[in-house]
Computed example of a mutant assay.
Amino acid sequence: MRALPVRRIATTVLCASLLIGAAGPVVAAESDSRSSAQEAADAPVPGADKLLAQAKTLSDAGGVLTPVTDLLTAVLKADKGQLPAADATKLADPVKAAITKAGAAAPKAPELPQTPALPEAPALPKALPDDDRTVAAPDPKADALKALQTAVDGLLKAATGGDVTKVAGAVTPVLTGLVNLVAATLLGGGLPAPDLAGLPALPKLPAAGVPQAPGLS
């Protein structure tokens, strides 16, 4: 009769061991699944650097649009289109800061180690006339920002000069400058092409290069 409790204890221990052994792989699988999910969550988005650059391009353009449209709204709502000098300065400063930020130069590429100097090659006969030069690559965004700042300066002058007849003529170049900036951003910012049905195709930027020499094909 004394052996019976011992048997029960042994049976209980055996069952517990079997249950633990069966549950072990399940717990390990759940742990591995959580680990894989966490690694997937921590992984970067494929192509994130390029997409971030595109988002920044739009952000820079948007950062210019808001202060310029604020200035336009203030002028057009003002009595006879005239602003006090202090108000004009308060509105002009954010515009200038936004244009400067949007036109900031991109980070320079890392410099490569210098290679040993090579002997000079003999001079070749000129294939092009002296007046032909290598055409620099166009920078439509920089041109648009510069033109916009000039238009804004003209608007500020008209809005503080006391002549209401000059205000309307100064507003249109600012609006045109904003449209040019948006177009230059779309064409030269490496953004995806618009795909809305009914939109006309955007023109391509002119390619820079060397003029072709006469008689060459």
Rank of each mutant, 00 (worst) to 15 (best):
T89C: 01
L18A: 09
Q54H: 10
D60W: 07
T11V: 09
V26N: 02
I9M: 08
A170F: 01
L4A: 11
A41P: 00
P203N: 02
Q82A: 08
L118V: 06
A98G: 07
Q54F: 10
D195V: 15
D93W: 01
L216K: 02
D49Y: 06
K141M: 13
D60E: 15
P25S: 13
A159W: 02
L181F: 09
T160R: 08
A117P: 07
T134D: 08
L71G: 00
K77P: 00
C15N: 03
D163T: 04
T73D: 14
A158E: 00
A104K: 14
A208L: 02
T57P: 01
P110G: 05
T69P: 01
K56H: 10
G81D: 00
V45N: 01
G21E: 02
L128R: 15
M1K: 14
V179K: 05
P129R: 04
T100Q: 14
A121G: 07
D93Y: 08
A61V: 12
D70S: 07
V210M: 12
G47D: 11
K96I: 15
P84Q: 10
V164Y: 00
R7W: 14
M1A: 04
T134K: 11
A106N: 05
P200W: 13
L155C: 01
A23F: 13
A158G: 02
L175N: 14
K146V: 12
G169V: 07
L18M: 05
V27K: 03
K77W: 09
K141H: 08
L19M: 11
T185F: 10
A41M: 07
V6T: 10
V13G: 03
I20M: 09
T165G: 09
T57G: 08
D32P: 03
G162Q: 05
R2W: 03
V6L: 11
L216G: 01
Q54R: 09
D153M: 02
A3Q: 12
T89R: 09
A104E: 13
T160H: 06
E111N: 02
P122N: 04
A158Y: 00
E111R: 03
K157S: 10
P173G: 10
L216R: 09
A151N: 01
D93Q: 13
V164H: 00
A98K: 01
P5W: 04
A207K: 15
A213T: 03
P203I: 00
L14F: 13
G215P: 14
T73H: 14
L155N: 00
E30N: 14
G188C: 05
L186H: 01
A193D: 15
A61N: 12
A105C: 01
V182Y: 04
A197M: 12
A183Y: 04
G209H: 11
A86N: 14
D153Q: 01
N180Q: 07
P107R: 13
L83C: 08
Q212E: 14
L65Q: 13
A136S: 11
T150C: 08
P94E: 11
A74G: 08
G190L: 03
L18R: 05
S36Y: 09
S36M: 14
S36N: 02
A53T: 13
A29R: 12
